[in-house]
Every structure is written in structure tokens, then in C-alpha cells.
Nucleic acid binder design. Structure first.
Lengths: 290, 290
DNA sequence: AGAATTCTGTAATAAATATATCAAGACGGT
DNA sequence: ACCGTCTTGATATATTTATTACAGAATTCT
């Protein structure tokens, strides 16, 4: 490991640029469950990566091996060496970095946050929240603050593709009262409020609540004051070894909600997405994904 | 995993008593560096253990496998499963919800993404990227696309508190060329480009590159075309059981970068943050955090 | 839009790997 | 010490697995 310095995984990644489409596809498949898949027969690997047999043979040679058997043999050597190291890298995330490296410490914390957050969430409440968000009979308002507006925007962008009748309000903008003019009873508010809870957000929530809207609050473990008038509160652990709080767990939750809502509305969503797809094609904003 | 519960290593050890002398010798050789040696060709294993080829074949059958290939295949399965669970099979994340619940399935994927992403990142490159971002001698541009501008904004908001000389450019805006007028050599660009790679982003990157700026690319596992002119590319796994991709892993990386940059610049940052603090107090935007 | 180059998969060929057969050797029992 | 049974390895065969050659498809460049 130290003598060669370069693991096969490294070599594959370095070569990634000089590989062709099919070869890259194969490379990713190998890295997908490394090193197990590379230790099977060539044909199995080819099938798994959905490329042809010769493609595998060619790439392996491109990487500098004489043939597939030599490649496998090196892989086994690597595996042997890895198992030999007693406490080896298994408890670090970024291999090649010491466990005190910020990458490992930060990731540890986030995983821990995810564990705690998910462990304390009531699945029923989450499902209810998703149903409220999915309900197209009522308008959906998404509200974020100074930092959290990025999360709000993220949710908004996806919801836009899934359902009509949505508005993104940034509570720090002083234009927000205008948005609240048309709020009707049973309209739904998804409100993000993390510590350094914002007065504007609280006021906004109060008005919405007064008008009979239902509030879903996404907050931190200490809970924004908004939670007192929220239908459903989802709290997230956000502490990390940093001067700042982490939104990673919250984003995970938001994304899960997006997936769940999409499933609930699939019938309607499908059409919307196809239309969107078409419009994107016309604007040529994106490259064709190969 | 759940059906047999017994690893091959276990099976060998249990059988140890019922094996003959040569077979036992072979068994120990297999266990010696398990599982690597069992994954090579039968003949190599035989030679390594100093027994004959048929002895290997016979023992493998005695262990209940149909033949050597089946034995190997099981070994690989085991290896695959082993590397998959770095985090102790926390069987479900959201307790009280079945493992098929979207909360659990989605979280599983994200954890997996984190593991892969971190595993493939080169800590040195990450550190270099952080240093570039921390360098206040040059202007820092942060660029996001249709969806990724939310991540870009998140990074921008934090960097704003840490250092001066930064600009957030949204590549979907058609005003972006104006921002590039003043780019100087060695200015730094952090560019987010995830699949459905955007043509605007690529063009922007090209211009920046031409002007001698250094590009740090944050992309997905298939890598945006921008990576060809990027100084440093950080790729993230983004696949989840959803019609959409996940940005959770990417956010984790961004947050880690924020923490790292903050550490690098702590001397200067401290003052900035105190000033910011004061200004927030004056505007009364936030409630006092108790 | 057409030519040249590169990429990719099918099919044939070559190599290797695994299994089966059999005879020699080791061991234990009488 | 001899016979029978069990163990072991050498050899031959069968099977799988890798490599090579080639042609069609895709891509790039002019």
C-alpha cells in the first residue's frame, strides 16, 4: 500500500478522463462495489456494467495491466494488504486522511445528526406532512429565512415540477406581507426556521395561522417558537464541529419529502415532468445527458 | 446475509474437525489471509497451501458448495456485503417505520452516497481547494445553475461572513457575462454543475479559464464537462430512490469546506463575525438565542 | 453534409481453470 | 506384517474464461 502508493481505485479515477464512454461506465461499476466486483469473472463484470466483454479487456489494458488476470491479481494483493492493517481505515470516511481530518470529523457528526433526527421523527407525522404538501386543492407556501431560504428554494424548485399553486416567500424580504393577502383557510405553509430564529418568520407564521392556514415547521432540535402554532413540527439535529450549523440533515429530510410527495402525486406529476422536459429541450439550456 | 447468517470463514472453522490432514492445511491457508486468497484461481490456492489441486476441489465440495466457482462467488458476495455496512447495520433509521418506508430507503441511499463520495475524495485535493477558497488576495466567484444555485447561495452566504471579495453568479441569469468583466488571473471560481449539465455554466467556465482563473468544480459522479478545465474536481454520488437527484452529500461537502476555510482564516474572520453580530443586533432581525 | 477516425459489440479462437479418473501412498485394525 | 479403507496427488478431459480479429455504429472534424 505504501510501496506502490497508488491503489487501483486511484488509478481508475486518474484515468477516468482518458477513458471512453463505455469504459467510464465500466469504471464506475467497478468502483461501485469495490473491490468485490473486480474479483469475479470478466464476463460477469461486463454484464454488471452493461458493456461488452472486450470493453473490459481493453480498459484493463489501458490501465496498464497486461491482462485481466493480472488486474485481478493486483486487486487481491491490495485486499490482502488492507485486511492486514489492524484498525485500518474502516472507521474513517475519507480514506487516506487521518481521523482527525475535518472531512472525517464533520462527516461523523452529520451521520450522527441523521441518526438522531431520523430516530426521533414520527413516521406518521412525516407522512401526514407529505400529504398536506401534496394536496393540490390548497395553495402551498414555502417560507425560508436568511440562511434557510436556500433550503426553501430547493424545495420550491422541485415542487414546481410536481404541482401547481406554490409560492416561495423569503421572510427577510420586506415584501412578504403582500404574499399573504390571498391566503385561504387550509392553505399549507412549509416554514423553515433554524436557530437565530427570525422575528419576521414568526410574525409571518402568526398571520398565516390567524388566516386558518396549516403550518408545517422544519426547525432544529431546540425548536423555533413557531412550533407552538404549527400543525406538524419536524426537528433536526444541526450541531457540527464548525462555527456554523449544518443543514445537511435537513436537506436529507426535504429531499425525502420531495420523493414522497412525488409518489403521492405521480399521476399528475408525470405529465408535468414530460412537459418540462420538452421545454428544456427547446431552450437548449442543458446538454443531452449521455 | 440473513438467510445463512454464517460466513464462509465460520463454515470452514466448524468443518475443521471433519477435514483430513491436507484439507486442514488448506483451510488454515485460506483463513490466513481471508478472503483474498480464496478469490484467486484454484491452482494458486493449492500451490500456496502446498496441497494438490484436487484437494482444494474436494474440500470445497465438502463444505457444501457445488464447486470452486460457487465458493468464490459466495466469498465475493460476503465481501460486497461487508464493505456495504460501514455503519453498523442500524437496521432502520426511522424507528417505528418499516424498512421499506421512504424515510429509511432514502436515508440508506444517502449514507451510501456519503460513504462512496468521501471514500473517493483525495484529502490533499480537498485541502488545496479549501486553501484556494480561503485566499483573500484573489476574488472568489461562486457559480450555480438551475438547481445548484441553492448550494452556491448557501456557500456564498457563509463565505460572506468569512471573507471579503466574493460574488455569487447564477449561470442561468443572462446577466452573468457582466460579472466576468473584471476577472483577473488566479481569481478563484467555485462552480457547481450537476447532471443535466448546463451549457451556460460550461461557457462561463471557459471564459473564466481563458482569463487565467482557477476553477474548482463540484459535480456528480459522471462529472460535468467543465472538469476538463478545472484545477480541482470534487465529485459526489447523487443517486437516490427518487425521480430526482440528491444534493445532501454535496451539501455535506460544502459545509465541510466552509468549516475548513473558516479555520484557515480564523484570525480575520473573528473580527468580521463580531461586526456582523453587532449589526444583526441593531437590526433586531433575530431573536436573542436563549 | 460527407469523410475519417474512434468507439463498441459480435463472433471465433486461444488460453486458463476446474473437474473427473485413477493409481500410489498412508494409516489403522486384526 | 498383511489387508482393507481412506487419503492424496498426477494426469487427462471438459468447461469456463479471456483474448483477438473484424465489422458495424457513433462521433468528430472538415
Amino acid at each position: 500500500m505504501s510501496d506502490t502508493a497508488l491503489t487501483i481505485s486511484d488509478r481508475i479515477q486518474q484515468a477516468l478522463d482518458h477513458l471512453t464512454r463505455a469504459e467510464r461506465q465500466l469504471a464506475h461499476s467497478i468502483l461501485e462495489n469495490y473491490p468485490a466486483s473486480g474479483l469475479g469473472p470478466l464476463s460477469a463484470l461486463a454484464k454488471d456494467a452493461e458493456v461488452s466483454v472486450p470493453t473490459v479487456a481493453r480498459m484493463v489494458q489501458k490501465l496498464g495491466f497486461k491482462g485481466y488476470p493480472e488486474f485481478q491479481s493486483e486487486l487481491r494483493k491490495e485486499l490482502k494488504a488492507k485486511v492486514k492493517n489492524p484498525i485500518a481505515k474502516h472507521d474513517t470516511w475519507a480514506e487516506g486522511a487521518p481521523s482527525e481530518h475535518i472531512l472525517n470529523r464533520f462527516t461523523d457528526s452529520v451521520i450522527d445528526n441523521i441518526k438522531h433526527t431520523l430516530g426521533q421523527i414520527e413516521p406518521d407525522l412525516f407522512d401526514q406532512a407529505c400529504e398536506l404538501v401534496a394536496d393540490t386543492d390548497h395553495h402551498l407556501y414555502i417560507v425560508g429565512g436568511r440562511i434557510t431560504h436556500t433550503l426553501a428554494e430547493y424545495l420550491f424548485l422541485h415542487m414546481q415540477a410536481i404541482r401547481p399553486n406554490i409560492t416561495h416567500i423569503q421572510s427577510t424580504s420586506n415584501a412578504w406581507p403582500h404574499y399573504l393577502l390571498d391566503v385561504k383557510p387550509n392553505d399549507v405553509f412549509v416554514i423553515f426556521d433554524m436557530r437565530r430564529y427570525e422575528n419576521n418568520t414568526l410574525k409571518l407564521a402568526e398571520i398565516a395561522h390567524t388566516k386558518g392556514a396549516k403550518v408545517i415547521l422544519i426547525t432544529d432540535q431546540w425548536r423555533s417558537p413557531v412550533h407552538q402554532l404549527a400543525e406538524i413540527s419536524l426537528s433536526n439535529r444541526i450541531v457540527v464541529p464548525s462555527a456554523w450549523d449544518s443543514a445537511a440533515t435537513t436537506l436529507l429530510l426535504v429531499e425525502t419529502m420531495i420523493a414522497a410527495v412525488q409518489n403521492l402525486n405521480w399521476g399528475d406529476t408525470k405529465d408535468r415532468m414530460e412537459q418540462l422536459e420538452e421545454m428544456f429541450d427547446q431552450t437548449k439550456l442543458f446538454r443531452k445527458f449521455t
